[in-house]
Design a protein around this nucleic acid. Structure first.
Lengths: 158, 158
DNA sequence: ACTAAAGTGGATAATGATTATCCTTATTAA
DNA sequence: TTAATAAGGATAATCATTATCCACTTTAGT
């Protein structure tokens, strides 16, 4: 039971896109290069972020990706949801039914508890946004961040 | 990212063991039969519950499993931990390191947030115990539970 | 002492989800 | 028209989970 690495990668990808000036765009390959991720697979993850309306894609020469929302409107939870999907951490396999031979599909003893647990978990992920992470990173890793920003500006288009 | 089905099965297995009178024991095969689980594999899960000190095993003819602790001392969280292990839901893959070329292994931006989220999640699982679940099941599914209890008493040994 | 029924532990296979690659098509700037 | 890019489908590689099998140990009953 582990979160996909794609969630972490996507968070950093979006932080990188947040370094772009308005109207500029960064090709998928440049992003995956920075992340050290598999380019072809990361392209698929970028699609999920597009589908979730977190980023926009521009096709064609000088195409690429950029943020669709303001960084303060992108929560870590949104990214998690885009990548992992909305299935819950726990889903009853109906063991209780078999055990007690119930007819009505009344639920599992654990479902309520697990839903509550997951909901408090999610609420923590909803607190942090790209804006606040961007602040963090700027405050704590200053010199290195500027180098990264320079690289991004070099590779961006438009 | 889904919880193993073994967690749910183990919870019900322990609820079944909770129906045993003192000193009695239930063979692993009888348990997996009730759960509709693969007997050979579920035996492995039972071992994990033994290692976690939640249940005891008795080898030999008339052997089997029984609870090691009182039902009010077995939390859903303990069962989760026994089956899933103590690895956390999130573990940084070190992307930030690669991106910023940091030397010190200072952490990922997400680690703190994810740890907090997981910790609140766990705290919910720590609230519910086998005792409280057993109450629930007795209150809500009375006639069927008695049938199950009868089956258990028929299959138990010692 | 022998047998049968049970748990233990190791090796290994089957299944399924995640990650990765490849190829074809669509889009667009130059 | 060309070249760079995203989109999308098919498929392979990898890895975790689930499942099976077998040799071994323990113990009650005879």
């Amino acid at each position: 039971m582990q979160m996909k690495t794609g969630v972490e990668q996507s968070v950093y990808a979006i932080l990188i896109l947040n370094m772009l000036p308005d109207k500029a765009v960064l090709p998928g390959e440049a992003i995956s290069q920075q992340l050290g991720a598999s380019p072809t697979y990361f392209q698929k993850l970028l699609r999920k972020l597009v589908s979730a309306d977190l980023i926009t894609s521009v096709p064609g020469v000088k195409g690429g990706f950029k943020l669709r929302k303001k960084p303060e409107d992108i929560r870590v939870y949104d990214i998690y949801l885009a990548i992992e999907g909305q299935q819950s951490l726990y889903s009853s396999s109906g063991v209780l039914h078999g055990i007690l031979e119930l007819e009505d599909d009344s639920c599992c003893l654990l479902t309520n508890l697990m839903e509550e647990a997951e909901s408090t978990w999610q609420s923590v992920l909803k607190r942090e946004t790209i804006a606040s992470l961007y602040e963090d990173i700027n405050k704590n890793y200053q010199p290195k961040v500027q180098i990264l920003q320079a690289v991004v500006k070099e590779k961006m288009v438009l």
